[in-house]
Every structure is written in structure tokens, then in C-alpha cells.
Design a protein around this nucleic acid. Structure first.
Lengths: 260, 260
DNA sequence: CGTTGCGTTGAATAAGGTCAAATAGAGTGG
DNA sequence: CCACTCTATTTGACCTTATTCAACGCAACG
């Protein structure tokens, strides 16, 4: 009993009972980036205090979003990037014939919207998977500031590069891994990202449904379900609905062929 | 006979008899970007002549490469981006257990090396698939100039964004398309990129082997071969070794589910 | 208390992979 | 110039993996 309670506090943001929030909610940003507790994870990472006043002019507002609410849709005009301040998002595309493909999951400190820069139109849809808050970063302002503050420019470029590397890692996963390896790689990826944010690396909530996970991994939901069950049977994980525990990280890494 | 000759001149760069070139060859850049005939395709795209003198200071040298020569390897230090001036490249990753995955093909006017920005180490391997020439763009110089010339900054960001969108389109392909759809989407993608460069949209060389195509598409080489044969049988393409003709673009687009 | 959405599991099926053999060219060396 | 080798490709037969179809359990909700 006790342990269950303790556990709950250590596995990422608590899942709120579904809130009544369904419409978005813009508010003026109470603090600047320089005093944000995410500054070491987010876009301002690595920027010296000398420049931080300038950086504080980058973000004017935050947007509070309810579960299942859409941040933006494909084909709509691009004007801003968004930094996840709290919560969890998925991005997905819909093909001509209605197939939906999840192209990414986004958590605290990650930047959303890079797909829109090229054509000034968004290419994907982004939806909150729980009640969330994003900082709105007007893109013309970011470009302006990046021109003035080389450290910001560098950091922005690094974030885009990271996105490219990350995407190509997913291509590798989709192009040359078996279903089991994919599922394990997915769990380990989440584990690592939670750990980088100070949450438990071995116990966390899957915000995504089996179907969303499957879509992301190029598998059907039944396959995901079967594989999670099998990993549990052989004692590598414990899974109950959306709560996972990784019982043997080393063995899992071996399966996923992770170099780490 | 005649048509064959004419045709040869219209299907991309001629395939040279394998040259003796096997070591790389650095040369001072004879012309600046502002007078380069690729300026409308490449990084300087959209930059006004006012700024073009500054831009001409971006590139000092070109590198001439032989077939199968490596431009850079994963894990080596990142210092420059490369713009493809002539030729054709593939990038690929090698997983811990030796599986090779092709992550992209790069043709004239495209920028290579964006994977290295984040960590200042390259993450992939890049190899010339025919005799090629690249312009070397020192990255610190690019960042410097981008800070001075907003139009260059914009264009650079657009190129990174395009890469992200492109990668996510590949994820879509790998995650939710059948083998036949993948092969067709691949052919159409090449077609469109050749067309954008003034070459024939319906007839071109596949520089890649069946195995490389398969690796890129998450398929085995036999599957690629079978599907190309089948597309030929049903009269949608003609294929002879690496020379392809697309006989019915509309029908092909229908198969790939291309919105175009 | 029925409805709805999500998850699990089993059996049948199809898509693509594996293995193997044959062929065709390109380059090599005598 | 010709035989030889090596690589790329094609094609067939068989097999594995993941998908499809279907049934059922469970919890949340109105």
C-alpha cells in the first residue's frame, strides 16, 4: 500500500482525473525563460546570464490545454514554435486514405512545431495527451533574437539537429527491427527521456494507447499488446494497463541492441 | 538508336565509366555561390544580390570524390556541412550488430551533414554513389554569416525544417505502407526530385542497388526486385537494371496515395 | 445497467523474409 | 581477345512473422 503511494509520486506528472478543460486558455507568461525551472532542458539551455534578459523577451504567453485538445493541425499557418512546459503530446499525420500515423511523442522541455518552418504551414497534427501547458514562441521573434544572440542561435540549431537525428533513429527502428525490438526500444527511449527529466527510469506511465504506440512503431495494436504481455511473462517488465516497470534494463538493452 | 542517344542526355548526369579517382581531392572554389548555377536550389536560394557578396565568403573549397568514397563517417568530428554540387550520395547508419540501414539519398543542391550539429560529431556515414563534387561549408562560418544575413538564416532554417518533414514522411512510409506502396513512393520521390532539377521526371537512373533501396525502404532486396518486376508486368514502369521509365504517373500516384 | 473504449488473447491468413539456384554483365588477368 | 571471377539481379519454393478477424474482459460513464 505504502509503496504504491510512494511510487505514484515518482512516476512522472500525476495523471489528473479528467479535467473539465476542453477549450484552450491563453495567459500572459508569469516568468521569463531565465527563471524557468526548465531552462537547462529547453531552448535556453547553455545561454549565459548576460544574454538572459534578451531571451526573456522571447516568450510572451503560455497556452493551457486540456486532454485531447489540438495544439495545431496540418495545413494551418505556422507562426510559432511551442515549448512543452507540462504535459505530453503526440504528433501525427493522416494519409489521403485516412490512415493515421503517429510521428512522435513530446514531453516536458521539448520543442514542437519545427515541421512548419519550411513552408510556413504545419505539416502534422499535434494533440495533448493529458492536460498540458506550452510556452508560445513566436517564430519571427525567435529568428530575430537568434540573430542577436549567437548562443541562442547555436542552441536552436542543435535542437533542430537533434530532431533530425531522432527521426533518423526512428527510421532505423522502423526499417530494420523486429516487432519485439521495436517495442523494447520504445520503452527504453521513454525511460531515458523520463530519467533526463528527473523521473524514474524504470517506472512510468505510458500516456499512449496500444494503438498509438503501434502506429508510432509501425505495428498493429494487437501486436503491441501481445509483445508487452510476453515481455511480462519472461520477467523483463511488469505492465498493468498504462503503468510499466522495467525490471531488467540490461537485458532490455540487449534486446533492443542499444549501445548504451 | 537516335532516341536512345537523346534519351541518355536527359536522364540526369551521365554515368561516367568508373574513374580511377579513389582519393579525395580538395580544390579552391573557383566561383562564389552568387554565380553558381545551383543557387536557386541550394542554400543561397532566396537571398538577394545585396547580400550575395557576403554569401560568397561562405565557401572556400570544393571536394572532388570518387565512386564509393566516404565523405564522412559516424562518430568523427563535425566541422562542415556539404552542399552536393554534382553527383549522388547515400547516408547510412550501422547498428551494433552490423545491420546497415540507409537513411537517405542526396542529390544535387541538397545539404548533407545536418546530423552532426547537435553533438559536434557525425551520427551517420555518407558515401558517394558516383563520382561527385561537394562544396564544403564550414559550420562556424555559416553560423556567423547567418547571424549577419537574416535571409541566409531563414533559408538555413527552412532547409533543416525540410529535412525534418522529409524524415517524417519516410517514417510514414515505413510505418504504414505496404511494400508495393513503398517502392512506388520511392520512385515518385526520385521522379519529383529529378524534375525539380530539370531532368526527366519519367526516366532516370537508380543509382542505388536493390539492396540499398531495400534498406532504405525497410524491405529485402528480393522483395524490391520482385515488386519492380511486377510493376513492369502490369505496364506501370519499364525497368532494365538501373534505368527506370515511369509509364503512368497518375496510376503510380494512386498506388502510393500521393496527394499530388 | 447498458454502452463505450481500451486491452487481451486465440486461430486463421497473408505479406514479406529466407534460402537457393540460375543468369547477366563488368572488370581482370593471361 | 577470351576465360574467369565477382557482383548484382531475378525468380521459385518454402517458412516466419505479424496482421486480420473474432471473442471476451474490464473499467469508466451517463
Amino acid at each position: 500500500m505504502k509503496t504504491a503511494v510512494i511510487r505514484k509520486n515518482r512516476i512522472g506528472a500525476p495523471l489528473p482525473a479528467r479535467s473539465g478543460l476542453t477549450t484552450s486558455n491563453i495567459e500572459r507568461c508569469p516568468t521569463g525563460c531565465s527563471s524557468c525551472n526548465l531552462r537547462h532542458l529547453c531552448l535556453p539551455c547553455g545561454i549565459r546570464s548576460v544574454d538572459s534578459e534578451i531571451i526573456d523577451g522571447m516568450i510572451f504567453e503560455r497556452r493551457r490545454m486540456g486532454h485531447h485538445e489540438t495544439l495545431y493541425r496540418a495545413e494551418t499557418p505556422f507562426r510559432s514554435l511551442y515549448a512543452v512546459r507540462t504535459g505530453f503530446f503526440k504528433s501525427y499525420a493522416i494519409s489521403y486514405d485516412g490512415r493515421e500515423q503517429v510521428t512522435g511523442f513530446h514531453m516536458v522541455g521539448e520543442i514542437i512545431g519545427l515541421d512548419g518552418i519550411e513552408t510556413e504551414k504545419h505539416r502534422f497534427n499535434v494533440e495533448a495527451m493529458e492536460d498540458s501547458v506550452v510556452c508560445v514562441i513566436p517564430y519571427d521573434r525567435l529568428e530575430d533574437l537568434a540573430g542577436q544572440v549567437p548562443a541562442l542561435q547555436r542552441q536552436f540549431h542543435r535542437m533542430m539537429s537533434r530532431e533530425i537525428v531522432r527521426d533518423q533513429a526512428v527510421m532505423m527502428l522502423l526499417g530494420s527491427m523486429y516487432a519485439e525490438e521495436r517495442v523494447v526500444a520504445f520503452l527504453l527511449n521513454l525511460s531515458q527521456r523520463y530519467a533526463a527529466r528527473g523521473f524514474s527510469a524504470t517506472e512510468f506511465f505510458l500516456r499512449a494507447t496500444r494503438e498509438e504506440i503501434g502506429s508510432y512503431l509501425g505495428l498493429k495494436l494487437e501486436t503491441v499488446s501481445r509483445l508487452l504481455s510476453r515481455l511480462q511473462q519472461v520477467g523483463l517488465i511488469e505492465i498493468d494497463k498504462k503503468l510499466v516497470r522495467l525490471l531488467n534494463l540490461d537485458a532490455l538493452k540487449l534486446i533492443a541492441g542499444s549501445p548504451i
